[in-house]
Amino acid sequence: MSDIIPDALHEHRSYLIRYAMLQLRDPDLAEDVVQETLVAAIEGRAKFSAQSAPRTWLVGILKHKIMDLLRKRAREPQLDVAEGEDENELVDALFKQNGHWADPPRTWNAPEQSLENAHFWNVFEQCNQRMPLNTARAFMMREFMDMSTDEICQELGISTTNCWVILHRARLALRECLDLNWFGNAR
C-alpha cells in the first residue's frame, strides 16, 4: 500500500507515457491518458490490492483509459483516407501479379537473441512508428493490449474482414521493416 503514494506514482509515469505512446502515437493524447490514469490511481488507491505489483495495476487502469479514448475517437469521422492507398502499395510491392513473392523472405539469423538486445527494441519501436496510424493502432490493440479481434472491430467500428486485412498489413509492414533494418536483408 505504501507503494501507491502520489510520489511513487511519478516513478511509473515515464513508463506509462511510453506505453501509451506505443498505442496512441500522439504525445498530447499519451500525456492526457497518463494524467487521467494517475488521478484515477490516487483516487482509487484504497482498491489497490497488495497482491499485484503497482506497475501492473497502473497499466490495467491505463489500458481502460486508452480504450475509452479510442472508443471516443472511433465515433469521430476519420480524415486520413490516403492511408489505405499507401498500404495497398506495400502489398502490391511484396507480391507479383501471380500471387508469388516478388522477393521471398529469407531466414532471420538468431531472432531469439535479438530479444535480449536493447538496440533491437529501438528498431522495433521505430518500425512501429512507421506504420500508418490506424494500422498501428489496430495492431497494438491486438498484440500489445491483447484484445480479441471482435473487441477491436467493435471498438474501431469496422467489419471483421476489414480488421483481419488491417492486422495482416500491419504484420507485413513490420516484418518488412525488421527485415531491412535489423536482420540485414536489405535488397
Binding site: 511510453r18 513473392w101 523472405p105 531472432p111 498484440e143
Partner: peptide
C-alpha cells in the same frame, strides 16, 4: 513447397512474441 512462406511463418511467430514482450522492454 515454399521456403519463402516457411520463413514468413516463423517470422510472424517471432513478431507476435516480440510485441508481447514489448511492455517489459519499455
Amino acid at each position: 513447397m515454399c521456403r519463402g512462406c516457411r520463413n514468413f511463418e516463423k517470422q510472424l511467430a517471432f513478431i507476435r512474441k516480440a510485441t508481447r514482450e514489448l511492455p517489459r522492454k519499455l
